[in-house]
Design a protein around this nucleic acid. Sequence first.
DNA 1: GCCAACGTTGGC
DNA 2: GCCAACGTTGGC
Length: 157
Amino acid sequence: MKQYWLLKSEPQTFSIDDLAQSLHQTTCWEGVRNYQARNFLRTMKLGDHAFFYHSNDDPPGIVGLVEIVKDSYADHYALDPKSRYYDSKSTPTLSRWSMVDVQYIQKFSIPLSLGTLRDVGELEGMELLRKGSRLSVQPVRPHEWKIIMRLAKTSSR
DNA sequence: GCCAACGTTGGC
DNA sequence: GCCAACGTTGGC
């Protein structure tokens, strides 16, 4: 069964437009350095869909859709001392961190801002809206996905 | 820029 | 195992 996710990125670092302009409109989702988020990456399956979320944006919000096109594998940036994602405790034999590949599907014509989502009563309980929630990779329940997809369609009309 | 919430580190 | 100190995330 297909699973749904939400991936956060700061648009100044890597935006959905950057993804759309990437080779094959695909990129590896490197740099996740939080165990809970990493475990979600490892749970992802080829063909899963995810919302692309712009954090630290004005306003922050869901801006489009991506598909998981490669199951999780070792995040080799952890082994590169020159990378901002270098982790001195990672070794080639024991990789602490993982990443997946994601491919661009679509950019919403109108982003769904965090404020808009907060106003949707049916989305109460969504991880993104939880107070203090900072997870950069998080699961989205099927009913939440459905509601947000409906919002995306109606607001682009 | 501020700061609340959260995660990690390391001394004890 | 506790917890203070510190670093990071991310909304505002």
